[in-house]
Simulated assay, not measured.
Amino acid sequence: MTARQQAIFTLDELAAYLKVGKRTLYRLASHGEIPAFKVGGTWRFRQSEIDRWINDQIQAGRKKEVIRTDEQPKSADHSVSSGRAVRRRRQTE
């Protein structure tokens, strides 16, 4: 294994690496949405797993874009959605 594969981040270090808040990372880790493990009650993150997770997120985003482009294009003459219309009516009453 290379040194990079063995790198372990703390919550603070990963927050800086990903440029996100510590609360966001804590939430993702506690819900199992990001690869993490605990050592003595504190979260740790293996850089190789985080990099793989990032690539998976990118791929998932690309798949969603393909699905969106395959959907029927919205025409310009669509009316306002019923949710918006209801909110507008309530404001005027």
Rank of each mutant, 00 (worst) to 15 (best):
G61R: 00
I8D: 04
Q57G: 09
R23G: 15
A85K: 15
E65A: 10
A15C: 12
Y26F: 10
S79Y: 00
A3F: 04
I58W: 08
L14Y: 01
V80G: 03
V20T: 11
E13G: 02
Q57K: 14
I58Q: 13
F37I: 01
R90C: 08
V86F: 10
D77G: 02
Q72M: 11
T69F: 10
K63Y: 00
D51A: 00
Q5R: 10
K19T: 14
P73I: 12
A36M: 04
I8L: 05
A60C: 05
A3N: 14
D70R: 09
A60N: 14
L14K: 09
S75K: 12
S81W: 06
G21W: 09
V80E: 10
R68H: 09
H31P: 00
I67V: 08
K22G: 02
R87L: 03
K63D: 10
L25G: 00
G61T: 13
K64V: 10
P73A: 13
Q6Y: 03
T2Q: 10
S79E: 08
E65V: 11
R44M: 08
K63I: 09
A85N: 12
K22W: 00
F9K: 02
T24S: 10
F9W: 10
A60P: 03
R90K: 13
T24C: 11
R88V: 12
S30C: 06
E33A: 05
S82D: 13
R46S: 10
R52T: 14
Q57W: 03
A76Y: 12
K64G: 07
D51P: 02
V80S: 01
S81L: 06
L18R: 09
A7Y: 12
L18M: 05
Q57E: 09
D12N: 15
W53N: 03
K64W: 01
R88T: 14
R88C: 10
E13K: 08
R46D: 11
I8W: 04
S82C: 02
Y17M: 02
V66W: 02
S75G: 11
E13T: 11
T69G: 01
R62I: 14
A36I: 03
A60S: 13
Q59D: 14
A76R: 12
Q5F: 15
V39M: 07
R68W: 01
Q72I: 06
R23F: 14
A36N: 03
V80T: 11
G32A: 07
S82P: 04
P35W: 00
E13H: 07
G21F: 08
P35H: 08
T69K: 11
T42D: 08
G41W: 05
A85M: 13
G40W: 00
